[in-house]
Design a protein around this nucleic acid. Structure first.
Lengths: 238, 238
DNA sequence: ATATCTAATACGCAAAAAAGATATATGTAA
DNA sequence: TTACATATATCTTTTTTGCGTATTAGATAT
């Protein structure tokens, strides 16, 4: 930065500055479909529209810490894998004032997601619908009603799903959506839900094993009325 | 956002808020090596260290607009392909005050890059050195001296190069580093410079043609004392 | 003109990887 | 014990990749 920037800094009131928030896309796979946590807005602007959980970044708070705090306090979710997604800063994205928001993507397994929704009528697990090429984006309630989204949150959601798809087959994001031990079928269902396509079973199995990401535990799933599948666990790449 | 956020907003002075800047990784391939534009800091803190061109985001300015403005006014570069990279917001990343910076990656061809460096002793085209797996990162002057980087700008540069590598073979970023018309050899040199490896020529040629991204122009390069290569141009995917 | 040089382009082939379909094995429950 | 559903293994086909080699085209010098 040059000198004028430097001087500018010593009078914090001299220039109006945008506010900074974090907004969270907390996502899981429920019943084979990608679901995100949305909160109903109860006050204007955009009352009754659905919004991502968000909050202001404290002056002494790292971005990741703010994201974790919002996940915990507003969404009731702890221990999700949080990853920075994109920063949205259009001048008119919020009608009240200039707000730049850093969006984070948080992945968790179905159980943790359901826990956060229990007994909280203003939180909702919205099903994300989106075609294989990215067109036709929509958020729907579990009962199928289209949910109107607040601000630019539809854009954020679309970015999140695209990111997830892009990283799916070369990173370990898929495992963040499953419990510690899982079957290959569960893993394939997660991949199919994210990609919106069906996959060939033997090929999928081979690819996963060849990547060296999963290790057999020896245990098997329980409660099946047919041959139970072996349980695997994630093993970070050697 | 919930009610308390909403109320909070109507008193802009009530809460201290971070400043927002944009920092630019302006990158090109010069002489077969990735080069970024750095500026020497002339005032404290971190005087004499080298920094990415950056600037504050105006209260009525989109992030992309701020990035384009900084590219033009501070770096002397117009028309680069600018793409958001990542947002860095560690509390102590700047010793003066809390600054959250949105980093942008700007790609341009060699000629535009050289123009920006002409007759400006405080701007420098630093060679980025980095091994194929990402270790051993360093910025060096064209004469080979290691350049001490200001703030967390080494981290930003590393992120930029990683992004570039990741997108190289499935997006069109490679073409942003070349003039409108280019030979296959030039395209291969760009890829090799970014990846830090050498590539097989026939296979590279086949892949590029199969992707349907490049179209022959019929024209040929000039000034060669041997058979001139055909000039191709980028053709967005059908 | 013609020979010669250099690098672009085309070709061929083997190795490897991926995909797809089919067959077999295995544990549960009637 | 038999039917059943799904996990797992095997085999074949197709596609992709790597790499060496031959051919072609333009520029330059003789």
């Amino acid at each position: 930065m040059s000198d004028d920037d430097f001087l500018r800094n010593y009078d914090p009131q001299a220039f109006a500055r945008p506010s900074i928030t974090v907004d969270l896309v907390l996502l899981s796979i429920r019943g084979g479909r990608p679901s995100v946590l949305l909160m109903r807005r109860t006050a204007p602007p955009q009352a009754d529209r659905w919004a991502l959980p968000g909050g202001f970044v404290g002056i002494d708070e790292d971005l990741e810490a703010a994201a974790a705090r919002v996940a915990r306090d507003k969404a009731g979710i702890e221990g999700a894998r949080l990853e920075q997604l994109y920063t949205f800063g259009a001048v008119d994205r919020d009608p009240r004032m200039r707000i730049v928001t850093v969006a984070y993507l948080g992945l968790m397994e179905e159980g943790a997601f359901e826990d956060a929704l229990r007994d909280t009528p203003d939180r909702l697990g919205a099903v994300l619908e989106i075609g294989p090429t990215g067109e036709g984006f929509a958020a729907r309630s579990p009962r199928g009603e289209a949910l109107p989204l607040a601000f630019d949150h539809a854009e954020i959601l679309a970015a999140a799903l695209m990111r997830l798809r892009g990283k799916l087959d070369w990173s370990d994001v898929g495992f963040s959506l499953l419990p510690e031990r899982f079957t290959l079928r569960q893993l394939q269902e997660v991949h199919e839900a994210i990609l919106g396509t069906s996959l060939n079973k033997p090929a999928f199995r081979r690819r996963m094993l060849d990547k060296g990401w999963i290790a057999p535990t020896g245990a098997r799933e329980e409660g099946a009325s047919f041959r139970p599948a072996e349980l695997f666990r994630f093993q970070p790449n050697t």
